[in-house]
Amino acid sequence: MDEVQIRLRVNGLERRGRVEPRLTLADFLREHCHLTGTHLGCEHGVCGACTVLLDGAAVRACLVLAVQAEGREVTTIEGLGTPENLSPVQVAFQENHGLQCGFCTPGFVVSVTALLRDNPDPTDEEIRAGLSGNICRCTGYQGIFKAVRAAAGNTP
């Protein structure tokens, strides 16, 4: 299959690559950009572990082809904060025990970031709806919901 040249902005930096047209955005981020915080779980768009922001909208990177991101802005978990300067959502997850094994955490943090940008004071029902595309197999969601409320400035 012929490769295609793509150019996009990832976490504020221009990235270019020659890719097969069927390469997913998740694979491009992991293999070409070496950004392994975008996790691959189900590879069917069900678990949410690969969630990134594409032009500000939360999307499943396993369902988006890299060629579809041509000329667009992608933000991964690495683009939200650094170990020295965590984003407010990352701090809330850390302080409210919103993670255990951590595999699903990047997808949740990216999804929560988009949710709170669009709805800074969500109800519990809106939080459930906003996170319905993310699955955690460890926490039972109590810490995650507490983290979202804390990041939103709500008291649990």
Rank of each mutant, 00 (worst) to 15 (best):
Q90T: 01
R117Q: 15
E125I: 13
G71A: 09
R117G: 15
C136T: 05
V10N: 07
A129N: 11
Q100Y: 00
N11S: 10
L131Q: 08
C104H: 10
V89S: 03
A57Q: 14
L8S: 09
A57G: 09
R18N: 15
Q90Y: 06
R7W: 05
N11A: 10
G48C: 13
G133A: 13
L54N: 02
G17Q: 05
R7T: 15
G17K: 02
A26Q: 03
H39F: 12
D118G: 15
P156Q: 04
L54K: 03
N154P: 06
R7Q: 13
F108S: 08
T24E: 03
T38Q: 08
L29F: 09
A61L: 03
K146S: 12
Q100T: 05
C138A: 00
T105E: 12
R149S: 01
V52Y: 02
F93D: 06
L86C: 04
G45K: 10
R117Y: 15
T76H: 10
R18M: 15
S111M: 08
C101K: 06
V148K: 02
T105S: 14
F108G: 05
P106M: 12
A69K: 07
V4Y: 13
D55R: 08
E73V: 13
A58W: 05
E73A: 14
C138H: 03
Q5A: 15
M1Q: 13
A150D: 04
T155S: 14
D124I: 12
V67I: 04
T24I: 04
L116F: 06
R18E: 15
C33N: 00
T24C: 04
R117F: 14
G48N: 11
P21L: 02
L99S: 15
N85M: 09
D27I: 08
T76E: 10
G81D: 04
P21W: 07
G98V: 00
L13M: 12
G130S: 11
V52G: 00
L53V: 11
L8P: 08
G130E: 09
H32L: 11
A147K: 01
T139A: 10
V109C: 06
G102R: 08
F108L: 13
F28H: 06
C50Q: 00
R9G: 10
V59E: 02
T38V: 12
R128I: 11
T51C: 03
C50S: 00
Q90W: 07
L53T: 01
G41K: 06
P120I: 10
V46W: 09
L53Y: 01
A66S: 06
T113M: 01
G79P: 04
G12N: 08
H32A: 11
C136W: 01
I6K: 03
Q68A: 15
V112M: 07
G41D: 11
R60S: 13
F108Y: 09
A114Y: 02
T76P: 07
C62F: 00
T123V: 11
